[in-house]
Simulated scan of single mutants.
Amino acid sequence: MESEEDAMKKAQMFEARARNISHNVRCTECGSQSIEDSQADVAILLRKLIRDEIRAGKTDKEIYKKLEKDFGETVLYAPRFDLQTAALWLSPFLVAGAAAGIWAYQKHRQKTNVHIMALNLVRGVPLTPKEKQTMLDILTPPPPQRKRWW
């Protein structure tokens, strides 16, 4: 009884491992699906290849390396970090940095515009309603803080 239960657990582990690997491998025919989701002939063959490699006792890393060697780097959904893929990996940080830089520049420019508005006011150039409101917001002192007797 115990060995039958162990065999069932091993089969479930084997299948879960094969499915996990298959979800991380791109179908070479479809391109947009994993081989687990694809019904293309090449996907079926790759799923069989993965199961054969697992039965042969290969680790997940070894299976990924074999697939990458046989089908190229694009077969894996997560490319390696190297000089060629650095732009791909770093692009989210570059975009976030550019957005932060633009935001900081806009804030700086907004403060600088207050000085320009003040100079224009001294020169006699009329302010637009938005500029007037901005000047009032800046020049209006904050409400006094209540002093507490305790």
Rank of each mutant, 00 (worst) to 15 (best):
M1S: 10
M1I: 12
M1Q: 06
E2R: 11
E5Q: 00
D6A: 13
D6M: 12
A7C: 05
M8V: 08
M8Q: 10
K10R: 15
Q12E: 15
M13E: 15
E15C: 07
A16Y: 13
H23A: 07
N24K: 11
C27G: 04
C27R: 05
T28C: 10
E29Y: 09
E29W: 06
E29H: 09
C30W: 06
S32R: 13
I35M: 01
Q39C: 06
A40M: 05
D41W: 13
A43W: 02
I44S: 00
L45F: 04
L46R: 10
L46N: 13
L46A: 07
R47A: 03
R51F: 01
E53A: 13
I54M: 05
R55G: 03
A56I: 01
G57A: 02
K58Y: 03
T59I: 05
T59E: 06
K61H: 13
E62R: 12
E62V: 09
I63M: 01
K65F: 03
K65Q: 08
K66Y: 08
L67A: 01
L67G: 03
E68V: 00
D70N: 07
F71C: 03
T74N: 10
V75F: 03
V75Q: 03
P79C: 06
P79K: 07
P79V: 05
F81R: 15
D82C: 13
D82E: 13
L83F: 08
Q84H: 03
T85E: 09
A87D: 07
L88F: 13
L88M: 10
L88K: 07
L88E: 08
S91W: 06
P92N: 04
F93G: 10
V95K: 12
A99M: 14
A99D: 07
Y105T: 11
Y105D: 02
Q106S: 08
K107N: 12
K107A: 11
H108S: 12
H108Y: 12
H108A: 09
R109L: 03
T112R: 10
N113P: 00
V114M: 09
V114D: 07
V114F: 08
V114W: 06
V114R: 10
I116N: 08
M117A: 15
L119H: 11
L119G: 15
N120K: 11
P126D: 04
P129S: 08
K130G: 08
K132A: 06
T134N: 10
M135P: 02
L136N: 08
P142E: 12
P143G: 02
P144G: 05
Q145D: 04
R146L: 04
R146W: 02
R148G: 11
R148L: 14
